[in-house]
Amino acid sequence: MQKIVILNGGVGNFSNVQKAVGGIISNEINDIRTADKIILPGVGSFGIVSNNIIPLKDYILEHIDKNKPFLGICLGMQLLFESSEEDEGTGLSYLPGKVVKFKNMKVPHIGWNSVEFSKDSPIFRGIENGSFFYFVHSYYITTEDQYIISYTEYESRGKTYKFTSSVQKENVFGVQFHPEKSGEKGIKLLENFKNL
C-alpha cells in the first residue's frame, strides 16, 4: 500500500484531506523520507508556513527529485516558489516565481470561483473545465507560462484580473484553491492525486 504523508504546514487541521486521500498527518523526517506521496496544505501566513517547512526542505526536495508526487495546497502551493510579499522567509524555491498581493482589488479573494484549465493535467481528470473551487487568499503566484495549468478570473470593483490558480512541473502540483473544501470536485481532484 502506498504511503501518503500530509505535512502540517501551519496552524490548520487537515483531517478532511486525510479523509479524502488516506495517509498520515506528520512532519517527521522518517515519514517524509519513506513517503510515496506528499501533500502540503497550508493555513496561516507565509512566514509561519515557511518556518514550519523550511527545516524539512532537503527531505521534501529529495522526495521531489525521486519524481514522487507532491501536492501543495494554497500556502502549500505558494511555498513551492521563492518568496512572498506577505512575509520574510523563503519558500522551497522549486519553481521560479514570486507570491504577490492582489492590488486595487477586494481582498481577500474569498469564495467559489471557476477554474479554467489551460493544460491537460492528471489531477483534473474527470473534472469539467470551469468547475467551481473554493478560494481564500490575498496573495497569488506569478511564474513562467510553462508551469501554469489553470487560470481563474477574479472580478472586483469593475475590473477583472486573471491569475494562476494551479501549476504543475512533472510530478509536482500546486493549487491555490482548497480542494479539501470544494465539495465533490475537490474530492475528485484529491483522488486523482492519490491515484497517480
Binding site: 487541521n13 483531517s15 478532511n16 479523509k19 479524502a20 473554493y134 481564500v136 482548497h178 479539501e180 473544501k181 470544494s182 465539495g183 465533490e184 475537490g186 474530492i187
Partner: peptide, 11 residues
C-alpha cells in the same frame, strides 16, 4: 468542530 471537520468538504 473536530467531528464536523472530518465530515465536511466545504468551508
Amino acid at each position: 468542530v473536530e467531528e464536523v471537520a472530518k465530515e465536511l468538504f466545504i468551508p
